[in-house]
Design a protein around this nucleic acid. Structure first.
Length: 259
DNA sequence: ATGCCTCCCCGAGGGAGA
């Protein structure tokens, strides 16, 4: 099974680029972030015509996550547990029913800027709730993956110019500590099993020629429970997508599982 | 750089992103 995560920065703006990448990369399961669409306006047919089941958790204008899967999806849930008053659409999960069941969680973690401030407080509170969900997934029997736009630069080597990010919510110490605490429950970062050192980025800003100057950061991550990591056979970053016509500012990150 | 683009709302120009 080929699995991928992709922050598309608006389904309307990516109505050509997303199918183009799907047709080229042929993933079986994809979690999408920033669909920026309400559920009833999401163009499901484009993906159903390609053999995908489509589950969305959207809202108007902002955020929004989705799962595309060529295999049936069961037990779909929407919204990260822990705060019934949180109305931002940033979490969806489902069980992919293939030769072996695997729990797939798609997430769009809050950006948190400017920091400090209420948006940063929301980021850290959301990460505390993510920790609780991650702990439950780790203790469950089913292999599980939590993937998406974490809005976290885990290490200095994950930024082309780390000093630019010292006071940014993506790289500030409390952000990295909260992320590390989740990883330390026992998760494996897919990309770091095979890609070492610097230069492996998943986001390049639209501004100031960041792509042409390769001023990227790695903020889209695939975290796997141990039983899921045992099934991983290959992974990568589809960097070339950033240089194509009308791209998102993020690129797909993918992993293959022996399922 | 309280922002060099781009996206969304819609039909101007402001909020949000990272």
């Amino acid at each position: 099974m080929k699995f991928a995560t992709f922050n598309i920065n608006g389904i309307k703006a990516r109505i050509e680029a997303l199918p183009r990448w799907l047709d080229a990369a042929q993933p079986d399961v994809v979690v999408l972030q920033e669909i920026k669409s309400q559920d009833h306006l999401f163009p499901k047919e484009i993906f159903e015509d390609r053999g995908y089941h489509v589950e969305t958790h959207g809202q108007k204008s902002f955020n929004g996550v989705a799962i595309l899967s060529k295999w049936p999806l069961e037990d779909v849930t929407r919204g990260l547990p822990g705060d019934p008053e949180d109305e931002q659409a940033r979490w969806i999960e489902a069980t992919v029913c293939g030769t072996q069941a695997i729990r797939i969680c798609g997430l769009y973690l809050p950006n948190g800027n400017p920091a400090p401030g209420p948006k940063y407080d929301y980021k850290l509170a959301w990460m505390a709730r993510l920790y609780d969900r991650a702990k439950d997934l780790m203790e469950a029997e089913m292999p599980a993956v939590m993937a998406g736009d974490y809005n976290i630069i885990p290490q200095a080597e994950d930024a082309a110019s780390p000093s630019d990010w010292t006071h940014d919510a993506l790289f500030m110490q409390p952000s990295r500590d909260a992320y590390r605490k989740i990883v330390n429950l026992g998760f494996t970062d897919a990309i770091r099993t095979t890609h070492f050192g610097g230069g492996h980025y998943s986001f390049w800003d639209y501004q100031a020629g960041a792509w042409n100057r390769n001023l990227g950061i790695r903020i889209d991550h695939i975290l796997m429970t141990p039983s899921c990591a045992d099934l991983m056979t290959n992974c990568g970053i589809d960097k070339n997508v950033r240089g194509e016509e009308k791209p998102s500012d993020h690129v797909p990150v993918w992993a293959e599982f022996d399922i």
